[in-house]
Design a protein around this nucleic acid. Structure first.
Lengths: 132, 132
DNA sequence: CATTGACCCTCCAGTAACTGGAAGCCTCAT
DNA sequence: ATGAGGCTTCCAGTTACTGGAGGGTCAATG
């Protein structure tokens, strides 16, 4: 199978597939003409990667998950550990963003948004406000 | 004032201050010895930048906000527009992360996390599940 | 007066995960 | 044989810094 077919079937862009080969996530063979030659298994792996990436796992996480996916004797606790760790990081990010949102939403609401210069947003960012 | 003092006073690391000069966010003078020479105004600007970055504004947003901050005749609607846009993007990110969290939390909960290989997380990521 | 330690300087490289684009084969159909 | 796609490699750019090497400067001390 050529890269285009694999891209269509897995949902992973050809460019990204080449990149994944570069960093050693997949290792397709080569045809005589120099084209990458993929198997069904590669399609599976790439779909797996696409799904994992969509869940926000890092490439390094993906590398780990992929090796567990391929390992018949993996223990579910290994997988769970990776996922739990990732979940924690997502929750941290959410918390940080929510705090930003709260501040921003408040400032935006207080700002008249008219032709005058007075603006609580700028004031909040300004250090002079501390001196007042 | 030297960069170290400014870093302490503004809370922005020296390394970052140099970077901000590189990309034209601030323009300190130079002393005869080649050291950057900062004024109080630079400290204000850097503190402003630090605050804006903490709220998640991009550097380009910061550039805009800084110029509005410096412009006596700015209109609050200009500021509000930038902030609203940013707020929208934050909300999008939150939504995306929350959706990831929901999926992940469910999978993590369902995973036994023991020595057996069976794992709903891996299964969810696997494309074979589609064939079943 | 020389040295030491704390500052400061300028590059250069690396981070994460791609993405776009140029230049140039390969293949198949007309 | 020619033209449209598809494939190849390699280089550069994205975001916002951060770390480090190699090397001046300054103030105080022995």
């Amino acid at each position: 199978m050529n890269i285009g077919d694999v891209a269509r079937q897995s949902g992973v862009p050809a460019k990204t597939i080449r990149y994944y080969e570069d960093i050693g996530l997949i290792r397709p063979n080569r045809s005589e003409n120099g084209y990458r030659a993929f198997t069904e298994n590669h399609v599976h792996k790439l779909a797996f990667l696409g799904r994992a990436r969509a869940l926000g796992f890092t490439i390094e996480d993906c590398r780990t998950l992929l090796s567990l996916y391929e390992d018949e004797n993996h223990e579910s606790m290994q997988v769970k550990a990776v996922a739990e760790d990732h979940l924690r990081q997502i929750e941290e990010k959410i918390a940080k963003l929510q705090s930003m949102r709260a501040t921003l939403a408040e400032l935006v609401e207080k700002c008249a948004g008219d032709h005058r210069p007075d603006c609580p947003i700028i004031e909040d960012l300004s250090p002079e406000r501390l001196a007042k």
